[in-house]
């Protein structure tokens, strides 16, 4: 799809992060084409959020390189304008829309503040751009005049998305962006994100634990476990024909019609098996 000439929206090589003796992220390599969409899937402790935070610049990598549109992050001696310019390239949407908005700031002001910091827009032009951004996520001037507490979780997450899009980033890092929402609202936000990517050619790095939503938002998947990427590839291939045992185990744990819960982890030696409650699928072969 994408032309091979422009540099990838994101190129990560040899990324590593240690906290004391603990290695949270170990030798991770990821690439996202301009306007592409990559899901990083993993369970808690897999290092997916730490990876996202390093890419967004919220965490300093122990080793490895992160390049956005072919450029590395400016060093500590870089000028403010340079750092700010780099910040415009990548924006982040957090999991909890109840915690990521200032509860004393009106929605419109929250968007306008970002525009003031990063653009030359002032006065009516800035107000117009704020309205345009809110409209893009399905909100109107009524919402712009209200405080976060008047908004539902889904609406707050729309605000967070509008705020991230305000600086026209090339990469949007979405860290469990729909995990805190109700099922029916999740689908709305995912549809909105699909729509925005078609319109703006922003690239997505979508961090999630939920395999069920991956295919609706991403072209590619990287499965992480214990800080490493264990399998990656096209979303359709990985979801329908997983190669790594861990990916298979993850997929087998998702309830689908006909699914029966089973003790997939290797606890069999300590657990008496009860006849009739064994899984219908052969899980023994899936143990890593």
């Amino acid at each position: 799809m994408a032309d091979s000439l422009p540099p990838p929206a994101l190129e990560v090589t040899g990324l590593r992060k240690t906290f004391g003796d603990f290695t949270a992220v170990d030798d991770v390599a990821l690439t996202i084409a301009p306007g592409g969409s990559l899901a990083v899937v993993g369970e808690s402790g897999s290092g997916k959020t730490t990876t996202a935070r390093m890419i967004a610049g919220l965490e300093k990598p122990t080793a490895g390189t992160i390049r956005l549109n072919g450029r590395g992050r400016p060093g500590v001696n870089a000028r403010t304008s340079e750092r700010r310019e780099f910040a415009r390239e990548v924006q982040m949407v957090f999991q909890d829309p109840y915690a990521s908005l200032d509860r004393h700031q009106k929605i419109g002001d929250c968007i306008a503040e970002v525009l003031t910091l990063h653009t030359d827009l002032r006065g009516p032009a800035r107000a117009a751009r704020t309205a345009e951004l809110l409209e893009q996520v399905g909100l109107d001037e009524r919402h712009a005049a209200s405080l976060p507490r008047a908004l539902s979780g889904g609406q707050r997450q729309r605000v967070a998305i509008a705020r991230a899009l305000a600086v026209q980033p090339r990469l949007l890092v979405l860290d469990e962006a729909v995990a805190a929402l109700d099922v029916s609202v999740q689908a709305q936000i995912l549809t909105l994100l699909q729509h925005i990517r078609e319109q703006t050619s922003v690239a997505y790095l979508f961090i999630t634990h939920d395999l069920g939503i991956v295919r609706h938002i991403c072209d590619e998947i990287a499965v992480m476990r214990h800080g490493r990427v264990v399998e990656s590839g096209a979303a359709d291939t990985v979801l329908t024909d997983p190669q790594h045992p861990y990916t298979r185990k993850l997929l087998d744990s998702v309830p689908v019609p006909g699914w029966k819960p089973s003790r997939v982890l290797a606890t069999a030696d300590t657990v008496p098996s009860v006849p009739g409650t064994e899984a219908s699928k052969g899980d023994a072969g899936n143990r890593p």
């Binding site: 029916s184 689908a187 709305q188 395999l211 069920g212 991956v214 609706h216």
Partner: peptide, 23 residues
Amino acid sequence: RALLASRPAPGSGGSLRAIPGRP
């Protein structure tokens, strides 16, 4: 039915259908 349609299974070909509004 709408709830089921807003959560298709990961490997299935079903497309995502949102319910408008909020609960």
